[in-house]
Amino acid sequence: MQPFATPAEDPALREACRLESMGGPVAFSAAGQAELERLFTRYPTREAVVVPALWIAQREFGWISAEVITLVSGLCGVAPSHVYGVVSFYTMFHRRPRGRIHLQLCTNLSCQLRGAEHVLNCLREKLGIELGGTTADGLFSLDEVECLAACELAPVLQVTETRRAENDSLVGPLDGEAARILIDELRVQAEASPAPVASVGPVADSAHRCPGVPGDMPTNMSSGGVRGVTSGGPGRASSGGAH
């Protein structure tokens, strides 16, 4: 009948679960909080806002730590373990910090058929990192991703600036040379513009806007010497049919 003491945290458990700490509690910015409040009005349950809240969190904090899960758990009224389950289930939530520019290369069939393996090797060589790795300067992370539904651009790479709102863009078709040039261009662009430190609000405010690669880079990579185009770049739809 004695009350039971809480045991010390098990390091083995933590290791296998790969849930990292940010070192202290976190909180959403005023803008993020406001966005969240609006989201709560769009769903009949608070739990339904877990995934949107994680998106806001990833934009604001860059990745999902144990503290972020605790935060979302409290706001959405869901046990932390379940928020953790959700985070681990979806591939787009990062459980450790990613580089400023997140490169996700599709290695599914349509891209593989058109040389994704070669592009991957070129990217690994150019960046000096393996899949899942981050460059020493913290600028690039490289991951593979399942079919991006852009097979007409195969091999296709998704480029995302992690701390900015919704700027994902597709680059393709790539070959080894184009991949190397793209990295150089992205590096030049990134060095020219300071890394975002604070979050920015939802960006999709203009119907005409064509969200590009990080910062204000031209969305049509062909101008930069890359053979491919980004999906939906100005003046040019994706290559292929349906014209």
Binding site: A149, D168, A207, R209, P211
Partner: peptide
């Protein structure tokens, strides 16, 4: 789907 960039932005704008 979570990976969609442009399709999502266009759709959000259209809904707005």
């Amino acid at each position: 789907r979570g990976e969609f960039g442009l399709p999502l932005f266009r759709l959000r704008d259209a809904v707005r």
